[in-house]
């Protein structure tokens, strides 16, 4: 980490007069470095986030299904995922580095652990929110347990599950910037690069890109939810 920091103490000014004058934000400098710095970092950031939320969702979703059938499982999983959620991210990286090294794995393990509580809670709340009479009617018509789950309970839990995915995704996009302490990837890398430097363009651009990414991801999830659960919208209207 120290070595990588030392190598970038002197910013890459290029021929830009704006950069030499060190204005707050140099649009030209940003454009010149889009292809070499920002675009690949943004793609890395999206990948890190997608993997974390994807794996987190699979784990939390399975755990929620289990807790839905076996009530006893709710408390242990809530306690463990709740504890993980409270550990400061830097501290968690610190704990993991001796085990998994300065690798993407370390970053992902930490990021996944922050998604679990939110995704688990929301999925379980959604499943439990299905009204009794709907379940009685479903069973009374001869749907098997599995059919009740896939055709009735899960579709009705979708709004709650999506709400969880939105919170988890926005949280992880923000947390992934911290993962740059472990791996030289994502929008956290240029932020870390520029943090001890007077020239602020790189720092501001990477930060704004992370914010924009969070907003876009949220919007995509909202639209997906509205399209996939038309009944929820009509119910409100």
């Amino acid at each position: 980490m120290i070595a990588s920091l030392a190598a970038v103490v002197i910013p890459k000014f290029g021929q830009d007069s704006c950069a030499r004058a060190n204005k707050t934000f140099c649009w030209d400098w940003f454009r010149q470095h889009w292809g070499s710095t920002f675009e690949p970092r943004l793609v890395e950031h999206i990948k890190l986030t997608a993997i974390a939320v994807g794996i987190g969702f699979v784990i939390a979703f399975s755990a929620a299904l289990l807790a839905h059938r076996q009530r006893w499982f709710e408390t242990p999983f809530s306690v463990v995922s709740g504890l993980l959620y409270t550990i400061p991210s830097l501290a968690l990286f610190e704990i993991l580095v001796p085990i998994t090294g300065l690798t993407v794995t370390t970053a992902e393990v930490a990021l996944v652990s922050y998604t679990l509580l939110i995704l688990f809670r929301n999925t379980l709340t959604g499943l439990r929110g299905v009204r009794d009479e709907v379940l009685v009617a479903a069973r009374g018509m001869g749907l098997t347990g599995r059919q009740v789950l896939w055709r009735v309970e899960l579709p009705l839990a979708m709004p709650a599950i999506f709400a969880g995915l939105r919170i988890a995704t926005v949280t992880i996009i923000s947390l992934t910037t911290v993962a740059a302490f472990v791996v030289d990837q994502g929008l956290g890398a240029p932020i870390l690069n520029a943090i001890n430097v007077d020239f602020k363009t790189e720092f501001i651009a990477a930060g704004l890109l992370a914010v924009a990414l969070a907003l876009v991801a949220d919007l995509v999830l909202v639209v997906t939810q509205r399209v996939s659960t038309p009944w929820a919208r009509r119910a409100a209207g």
């Binding site: 009479e133 018509m141 009735v152 009705l156």
Partner: peptide, 16 residues
Amino acid sequence: RRGIGYVIQQVGLFPH
């Protein structure tokens, strides 16, 4: 159950 019609007070229609 598939061979018996079942109607309940709260109806229990599938909202989705």
